[in-house]
């Protein structure tokens, strides 16, 4: 159906970056002034910029991802309603550029979830109680490793327990295969031509004003 555009992804095992705050908006994930770039790459330095750096530009030692042991971790655990606010895809780009492969929360904003899935970044929604359980495990053992298994749709915990989750079935298959949606859409050409014949344009932006 489509050719691979990225590495297929099945699972990731990592210690956790804990940021258990509710309603983390896209302006916190990457402030708007960094959206003047015309590239996708290179946004990792700006991830959580205004929490991460002090007024003089030095790293804020109290902010979680500045702790030395966080380097190389690829699972972020956050509070409810992660990614609310703008449609900027720079948010998942910045998370992925820093090295995050999966974000675990009790809920995600719709546009952020869509954008994340299109970049192979997994938004994993679990119940508030299960999120609390993961946060507690990390609180007790900050270096505890967990596994996010997309194939099995479960988070495996160091105590042997597991938590099931659901990812949109179509997006899941794309990420497992390393394909993307555009190939699928382009393959719809016959349906698209039929639709366009039946639906003449409602406006023409090319017409003189």
């Amino acid at each position: 159906m489509s050719t691979a555009v990225r590495e297929p992804f099945r699972e990731v095992t990592s210690a956790v970056v804990p940021l258990p705050r509710n309603d983390i908006d896209t302006d916190q994930i990457i402030p708007a002034r960094f959206l003047k770039t015309i590239n996708r790459a290179g946004l990792g330095e700006q991830l959580f910029h205004d929490w991460r750096y002090l007024a003089d530009g030095s790293p804020n030692p109290e902010f979680v991802i500045n702790r030395p042991e966080m380097a190389g971790r690829s699972v972020l655990v956050v509070g409810d309603n992660f990614g609310c606010g703008s449609s900027r895809e720079h948010a998942p780009w910045a998370l992925a550029a820093w090295g995050i492969r999966a974000v675990i929360s009790s809920s995600f904003a719709d546009i952020f979830r869509n954008n994340a899935l299109k970049n192979g970044l997994l938004p994993i929604a679990v119940s508030p109680e299960e999120l609390e359980r993961i946060v507690a495990i990390v609180r007790d053992d900050p270096d505890a490793e967990i596994t996010v298994d997309l194939e099995a749709q479960e988070v495996r915990l160091p105590d042997g327990g597991s938590i099931g989750f659901t990812v949109d079935s179509f997006a899941r298959r794309m990420i497992l295969d390393g394909t993307d949606e555009l190939g699928y859409l382009l393959a719809q050409e016959p349906a698209l031509e039929a639709y366009e014949r039946a639906h003449p344009p409602r406006v023409s932006t090319l017409a003189a004003e």
Partner: peptide, 17 residues
């Protein structure tokens, strides 16, 4: 609102999944 990947989809196909 849509993300930039979806902007590309619409530019290319005038559709979205």
């Amino acid at each position: 609102g849509i993300g930039t990947t979806e902007v590309e989809h619409v530019l290319a196909t005038q559709t979205l999944l």
